[in-house]
């Protein structure tokens, strides 16, 4: 009885700590950023300008850039992460399994500045030569590919991000997949299902884990700073195609923070960007939760 109570109290303590930290972050973000909202109002979100000399800031391009690069990243990473998870837990010989899993976990733990350097010096030139230029030359009539690409742009950032988040999403999906009770699989095989049909059924069974993995990965993609700052092009323009150079909120913060304190309104502007990033992340996660719940109810 007594130990039960201690257990309960300690749990409450942890919950309160976590909540306090989150609330504290939100309060300090609001507290540090309100001067910029007082100064520019909605214009801070709806305009495209970054002019420290005039102390004029509007972060529409980074906001769009964050959404575009994350969307590219997630649409490339999701199918690959699911395939990797299935491959690692279903297809590969069990002797090699732990090796593949270790490599994938190692990928997840690499510091992002390494991805950034690799992205800038290796990935960007390769993508430019073999993917972006051909796409632009042959499919340039599609607005998506209409801009003549430079090696660093939103597309490069999206691809680099997808590579960075695949192991994240994949390891969550893999854990869920291997946790499926074995008798379920046996039952499926005994019904005469092919391997493909079994995998399809099992994936349906772990839908919510797949969603969770993808949304966690999306969160990382939206918040990535250093790697993106090195390959996104860092231009304050509203993008018209995925080959346009752009900005993301996180990379804007990484770029501008070191000298921000030399200005009166740049620090609030960067905190304002962080607040908006936080809000967008929250909205996307809420939508995600809602989707997961609907899927759960259906099944």
């Amino acid at each position: 009885m007594k130990s039960g109570k201690i257990f309960q109290i300690s749990l409450i303590l942890f919950i309160v700590t976590t909540l306090t930290i989150v609330v504290g972050i939100v309060i300090s973000l609001i507290n540090s950023s309100y001067p910029i909202f007082l100064r520019h109002g909605f214009g801070f979100i709806s305009r495209s300008v970054w002019n420290p000399i005039e102390e004029d800031y509007g972060i529409l391009p980074p906001l769009l850039g964050t959404l575009i690069t994350s969307a590219i990243a997630i649409s490339i990473a999701t199918p690959l992460a699911i395939s990797l998870a299935i491959f690692a837990s279903e297809i590969i010989p069990s002797r090699l399994r732990s090796f593949v899993n270790n490599v994938s976990d190692l990928m997840a733990s690499l510091p992002s500045v390494i991805y950034g350097l690799w992205g800038l010096y290796v990935l960007a030139p390769i993508l430019h030569k073999y993917v972006m230029l051909p796409l632009h030359n042959y499919l340039g009539f599609i607005p998506l590919f209409s801009v003549k690409p430079t090696p660093t742009n939103l597309f490069t950032a999206g691809v680099l991000l997808s590579i960075m988040i695949i192991p994240f999403a994949s390891s969550i999906i893999r854990e869920a997949y291997t946790a499926i009770p074995y008798n379920l699989k046996e039952a499926a095989y005994s019904l005469g299902m092919t391997r493909w049909e079994v995998v399809k059924t099992m994936l349906g069974y772990i839908r919510s884990a797949i969603f969770a993995g993808v949304f966690l990965a999306l969160g990382r993609a939206m918040g990535e700073t250093m790697a993106v700052a090195m390959v996104v092009g860092n231009i304050m323009n509203i993008p018209k195609s995925i080959f346009d150079m752009g900005y993301t909120i996180s990379s804007l913060i990484a770029n501008q923070f070191p000298n921000a304190e030399a200005y009166k309104y740049m620090v609030p502007a960067l905190y304002g960007g962080a607040l908006i990033l936080f809000t967008v992340g929250l909205i996307i996660n809420l939508i995600g939760l809602h989707l997961v719940r609907r899927v759960m109810v259906k099944s």
């Binding site: 430079t150 660093t152 700052a229 090195m230 092009g233 860092n234 231009i235 346009d244 150079m245 990484a254």
Partner: peptide
């Protein structure tokens, strides 16, 4: 004009 590149 779309002819600039920003680098860190």
């Amino acid at each position: 004009l779309g002819n600039g590149v920003g680098a860190k």
